[in-house]
Computed example of a mutant assay.
Amino acid sequence: MAGQPVVFIHGLWLHATSWNPWIDFFRNEGYDPVAPGWPDEPGSVEEARANPDAVADKSIDDITGHYAAIIEALDTPPVIIGHSFGGLITEKLIGQGYGNAGVAIDPAQIKGVLPLPLAQLKAALPGLGNPANLKRSVALTEKEFKFGFGNELTDEESKELFDAWAIPSPARPLFEAASANFRVHSQAKVDTGNEDRGPLLLVSGTKDHTVPDVTTEATLKQYRDSNAVTDLTKFHGRGHSLTIDHGWRDVATEILVWLRQQHANE
């Protein structure tokens, strides 16, 4: 009998294969995990770096629709786990009724979230700094990756992660999220009032530059009008790299405990 399916969704600037340790971990715990790439994402880090235009101009709705189709093809509603913009996509999918539980790790800000700390602006600058990037794919430098992802890591570990997983990504989602509160019909809007959705766990790294803790706390407040389960857990002293750095297993283990609690309460 197949285990509970899990769909992992990565964020900007990381390749889908960065979830490989999580896939092994969840499979060993009896789940049936997959980590599909974003639409048109090449199958390897090397191919993605060699063909950056493959993912250029992809929007939040493009990415959400891509994963919705993957989920619809499954026999059983999955757990959906996303990081960064993958967390925002997870929130959209759960709000639309997909999946039986969701985990949004350091999720990009949705419409309605107002805090925009300076560190977050700086981390987004590689994409947002040039309006012409809207339809382009953008890559981080090693220094930019260190600030946005590896600020709580040694230079050596940050470089190792950059070399292993960093890829060019579309800048359009950054622009869509940044302008969300100025647009009536923003693609960064999530149905936070859905009472019938599965439980949702928000995860924050308290030293995250890319999605600061205050941003995730503000995201939690957007769910105040729903009686559906919405929880927040924090990993103190952790940055945006918390899904791929030396401490990833601590994050995965706490998520697994939370998931089992939800299923025990069903």
Score class of each variant (00 low, 15 high):
136 R>Q: 15
160 E>K: 14
156 E>Y: 00
154 T>I: 09
146 K>D: 11
138 V>M: 06
162 F>A: 05
134 L>V: 14
144 E>Q: 11
150 G>K: 00
148 G>W: 05
134 L>S: 12
154 T>F: 07
158 S>M: 06
147 F>D: 03
144 E>L: 01
166 A>V: 10
149 F>H: 04
155 D>S: 14
158 S>I: 04
137 S>I: 01
134 L>D: 12
154 T>C: 07
155 D>A: 15
142 E>H: 09
130 N>F: 11
143 K>N: 08
136 R>Y: 07
155 D>K: 10
156 E>Q: 13
140 L>H: 01
138 V>P: 08
140 L>V: 09
153 L>I: 03
163 D>L: 12
135 K>G: 13
137 S>H: 05
145 F>Y: 09
151 N>D: 12
163 D>T: 05
167 I>T: 11
147 F>K: 01
152 E>Y: 06
131 P>C: 12
151 N>K: 03
141 T>P: 08
158 S>D: 10
135 K>Y: 14
151 N>G: 08
145 F>H: 03
133 N>G: 12
134 L>N: 12
135 K>L: 12
143 K>E: 13
158 S>G: 10
145 F>D: 06
160 E>S: 14
132 A>S: 14
153 L>R: 02
166 A>Q: 14
160 E>A: 15
166 A>Y: 00
137 S>T: 06
164 A>W: 05
155 D>R: 11
146 K>F: 11
152 E>S: 15
157 E>F: 06
138 V>W: 00
165 W>M: 07
151 N>P: 02
150 G>L: 06
133 N>I: 11
163 D>A: 06
159 K>H: 05
146 K>Y: 11
140 L>Y: 08
151 N>S: 09
138 V>A: 07
161 L>D: 05
132 A>L: 15
151 N>T: 12
151 N>A: 10
152 E>F: 09
149 F>W: 10
148 G>Q: 02
155 D>T: 15
167 I>R: 05
136 R>N: 15
140 L>A: 04
140 L>W: 09
132 A>R: 13
141 T>Y: 05
154 T>G: 13
167 I>K: 10
157 E>A: 06
162 F>N: 01
154 T>K: 01
165 W>K: 03
148 G>E: 03
140 L>S: 02
162 F>V: 07
145 F>G: 01
159 K>M: 09
140 L>N: 03
150 G>T: 00
150 G>W: 02
144 E>P: 02
